[in-house]
Design a binder for these strands. Structure first.
Lengths: 330, 330
DNA sequence: CTCCTATATGCACACGGTTGCATGAATTGG
DNA sequence: CCAATTCATGCAACCGTGTGCATATAGGAG
């Protein structure tokens, strides 16, 4: 492998001159620079960034820890982070933590050892554990998702409450009177906020809440969907707290011969890719996942003066084909 | 930031002793080792892997260049690479090349500068360009996908031909006599092979091929689907060369009021997540994407003796709900 | 007591760049 | 023609860790 010292020898200069020439230092004469460039080219030189990294104290790398690569939901987050990082000429180190705290802490250790210039932790359950690991050396970190409103750590999340409110409002405006809500696991922060949004909308309009609990998986949507749709007075609309459960509900409705959207409106949350591609594409609330990724990178890298440590992004109601005017009551 | 020299000073030893102690060198006495461990702990020491990297000449990092993070199809590949790399205690640097050769070469340069221990290039169109960049320094590389059978470079792909053959055969065994094939863009290598597999199966059974060309996008599936299903004698089964196009065809059928699978069987290729989640889930040929990722890492990292430079994995026919016995001819 | 052998640790250099400061050469002004 | 200044380059230290070899100390055998 050819180094700057090799080039220096060939060009009859010192290796510091080579370094400066290749970095366009104006103090090196154009003639020398040109010569060095030429020799470098001839020898097939390739910069070894490891030297620079050690000398300059930066790694031009950021780390991203994602709970579960398997879940399509995180894909746009990764994309956002990758693209924004690339804009800054930064590389991305990706770790999947399998939603397991041990792996998560392991990933943090790994990235700290690599001295990444910044760390993005997505949807962790253990803020304190991570901060504890990072604290001794004050590594810069940004969290995405799962954020408490009064979190002392820099985070990015979206407004689940108002997103859920919008979704419920949408159904109400279509004339639905009986709107069931299929909640996520209520230990989770966003699940609680989404429930709140639903409740607020329903109560503001003098409707009675009808709450069921799932666990954000498709199969829980299916099971609970079967139950709620077999009730004597079944809802005319279901708001599922995420798309996976919404798809489970659709499955259940399908098996029960209930037509969507004519006989049942369904709305989800997140705007996950598979839901977009259904034959009757799902109406949902889009979480700006890609933008969340981009913003996280910006917060980490943008010239040191973070305007704010907390960012809450808005959501967007995406009306597609699964919501429909309520049928009149007989 | 506390370094080994700091620890050494505190513990009254030299930094080489610290290095050895922390690496469990048996030559350091248990007493000293324990003491050094303790001091390291007290000072909140964290290994800086950059030093090791430079000293040992390895980076414990592999690079993965993916054409397009946006496409869910690549997700299992990333997962496979990430998991396998983690098993080896390797980190993963991820680059999305936006299916643009310039970005691709840029990504290769970046990873080379970072001195990754191995490079995985997924579905490139420009093997020579990349090898040209890598050649001068003989960086280890493995390609995934888009492989020519006689490629001189180490690659992993799956057997598109036999996969397509299986798909067509499946339809034939269900009694279909008129099976349309919606091909991918025929410049692409796998598109050609899939077409060959289809042709072989159809001809072996004395059926007449009915070939249409798409471009692997959902919308091309929709457009061509509309056309082929509006023919006077429309096919009873469609084999789309990938899942996205299959979903387009299903959309078209849906709009034309053609019932799937009763009136039309549809089969895809790849087993992309959204196709799995349709209300009537798609029958398809699974490309072992995750395993391809894992294998690529293994080829790069496993103790230097690659058994073979070319791996062609098998595919798996996944029968779900979109294929059905052919209706009898009247 | 002396010699030999383990055992434990330190010294110094290596890895591949970057950078503050010094030095030598060339140019300019008087 | 000399001094002052600018310009181009080299020297050497540095970043944090790993490692071959030398050295110091202790323990055991004769």
């Amino acid at each position: 492998m050819v180094t700057m010292r090799d080039i220096a020898k060939m060009a009859g200069v010192s290796h510091s001159t080579v370094s400066r020439a290749l970095n366009n230092d104006p103090r090196i004469s154009p003639k020398t620079t040109e010569k060095i460039r030429q020799v470098a080219e001839d020898l097939g030189y390739s910069l070894d960034i490891r030297g620079r990294v050690l000398a300059q104290g930066r790694t031009f790398t950021i780390g991203l820890a994602i709970p579960n690569i398997t879940n399509e939901f995180f894909l746009p987050v990764i994309r956002g982070v990758e693209h924004k990082a690339a804009e800054f000429d930064y590389s991305l180190i990706l770790c999947s933590t399998r939603a397991d705290m041990r792996f998560e802490l392991e990933a943090v250790r790994l990235m700290a050892e690599r001295r990444v210039d910044g760390l993005i932790i997505a949807w962790t359950d253990d803020f304190e554990g991570i901060i504890g690991k990072l604290e001794p050396n004050k590594w810069p970190v940004v969290f995405i998702g799962n954020a408490l409103e009064d979190s002392p750590y820099p985070f990015i999340d979206c407004d689940h409450r108002s997103g859920a409110y919008d979704a419920a409002k949408h159904l109400i405006e279509l004339g639905h009177k009986h709107i069931a809500f299929l909640a996520g696991p209520l230990i989770s922060i966003d699940a609680g906020e989404r429930l709140d949004g639903y409740k607020q909308a329903v109560e503001e309009n003098d409707l009675v809440p009808d709450m069921w609990e799932g666990d954000y998986t498709r199969s829980s949507g299916y099971t609970q969907g079967k139950k709620m749709l077999s009730c004597r007075r079944r809802p005319t609309a279901v708001f599922a707290a995420n798309d996976w459960m919404a798809m489970g509900v659709m499955s259940a409705a399908n098996e029960l011969g209930i037509k969507i959207p004519e006989e049942l409106s369904v709305i989800g949350f997140d705007d996950v890719a598979p839901a977009r591609h259904l034959l009757t594409p799902l109406t949902t609330v889009r979480q700006p996942a890609q933008q969340m990724g981009r913003t996280a990178v910006r917060m980490l890298l943008e010239n040191g003066k973070p305007k704010s440590k907390r960012v809450v992004l808005g959501t967007e109601l995406v009306v597609r084909k699964t919501t429909h005017q309520a049928i009149e009551k007989r």
